[in-house]
């Protein structure tokens, strides 16, 4: 068996106040090297001020084949949206 270098998912916070956002991934032997590599690869042009690395193997993703049953029913639940309720113009913003 070939010993592969683990894969890491990289998240960057553009600036304080914003959430970390997924930007890509990279290979590194451990979390310390992963952080260093992420900093080198993904923040060369002021992209952010904070980095998270997460082992890709630790990410559990939903099954694309089940996207329909997972996400379609919400489309019918129109009563979850403010526009479903009729508020007369005169009452103003609500």
């Amino acid at each position: 068996m070939v010993n592969t270098t683990p894969l890491w998912e990289v998240f960057i916070r553009p600036r304080n106040g914003l959430a970390h956002k997924h930007v890509g991934s990279l290979h590194a032997a451990d979390e310390v090297m992963a952080l260093q590599a992420a900093r080198d690869v993904y923040t060369r042009r002021g992209e952010g001020n904070s980095v998270w690395v997460v082992p890709s193997a630790a990410v559990t993703a939903s099954d694309p084949d089940q996207a329909g049953e997972n996400f379609e029913p919400t489309g019918e639940k129109i009563y979850r949206h403010p526009t479903f309720y009729e508020i007369p113009e005169e009452v103003g913003n609500m």
Binding site: H81, P82, M94
Partner: peptide
């Protein structure tokens, strides 16, 4: 906290409108 509140506020408008209705 601020980010949680942004999510919450987006959902609150429906609450108030259904009540007023």
């Amino acid at each position: 906290y601020a980010r949680a509140m942004i999510r919450v506020c987006k959902e609150e408008s429906f609450h108030q409108r259904q009540g007023y209705e």
